[in-house]
């Protein structure tokens, strides 16, 4: 894998409410440059919302977000999101565009690269995820696993400083999960800063440097994977682990 222009990402005391529903209740999350933080917890605990708040797809009601130690809340949110790649559970590839166009769109329109150069860079990214030969196919003609790898290539093409994965393997057939997890593992080992919301406890335990357990909008426990998985301190984490493992 190539070297990444990784950055350090910090969320401080993040709060968010939808009406009376207090979804995030003071979340702190610190992801050191080049490390992988995984976020686990029951559905509805606010994990996915936390990702969307940290790249400002949803603006937090309170708290601060720092990239390399500098608050980004006053930046243009579109420019912030160019620095943070995101991969979704449902892939969300653009079905009206070819695989290559999916990857090169932001390069052409945001990075303003000429078409040929954008295509060359897109093909290079697709090669990294093993799908260069699918460059001119439509997403609908790819398997779920292939689509998700294209989505990862699309995010990586923007040379992000941080990558977010929002349950990236949850919508995949079991036999396709492995290829996507392998790619994510390569990225993590290659020094990409990553925040991974996941139900894959194996990945969380074996690949991430830090695990955060969330429940009902708060961080219940956070620490290195050995501690979280072998010596949980709270009853809630113990209960969660016994449910999922």
């Amino acid at each position: 894998m190539t070297e990444f222009a990784s950055g350090t990402l910090t969320g401080k005391n993040l709060h968010l409410s939808f009406g009376h529903n207090h979804v995030l209740r003071g979340i702190d999350l610190h992801v050191e440059k080049g490390t992988t933080a995984s976020v686990i917890g029951p559905s509805g605990s606010g994990k996915s919302t936390l990702l969307r708040v940290m790249n400002r797809l949803i603006e937090p009601d309170q708290g601060d977000i720092l990239l390399d130690g500098r608050s980004v809340l006053k930046d243009n949110p579109d420019e912030l999101r160019q620095r943070i790649g995101m991969v979704f559970q449902q892939f969300n590839l653009f079905p009206h565009k070819t695989v290559e166009e999916n990857v090169s769109l932001a390069l052409r329109k945001l990075r303003k690269l000429p078409r040929e150069q954008a295509r060359a860079e897109a093909l290079q990214q697709l090669d990294l995820v093993g799908l260069k030969h699918k460059a001119d196919s439509r997403p609908a003609n790819l398997s779920g696993g292939q689509q998700q790898r294209v989505a990862i290539a699309r995010a990586l093409a923007m040379k992000p400083e941080v990558m977010f994965f929002d349950e990236a393997t949850s919508a995949l057939d079991p036999e396709l999960v492995k290829g996507v997890l392998a790619l994510m593992t390569d990225l993590a080992k290659g020094g990409m800063t990553m925040v991974v919301v996941t139900h894959e406890m194996g990945f969380s335990r074996n690949v991430s440097d830090n695990v955060t357990f969330m429940d009902a909008g708060v961080v219940v426990e956070s620490g290195p994977p050995e501690q979280i998985f072998t010596a949980p301190r709270t009853e809630r984490l113990r209960g969660f682990l016994s449910d999922v493992l």
Partner: peptide, 22 residues
């Protein structure tokens, strides 16, 4: 229904990224 195009199995899922076994 879309234009008919053949789907292929995810044959490349396995070889890339050996890191998963780590």
């Amino acid at each position: 229904t879309g234009k008919p195009e053949k789907k292929e199995p995810d044959e490349l899922a396995a070889p890339i990224g050996k890191g998963a076994q780590a």
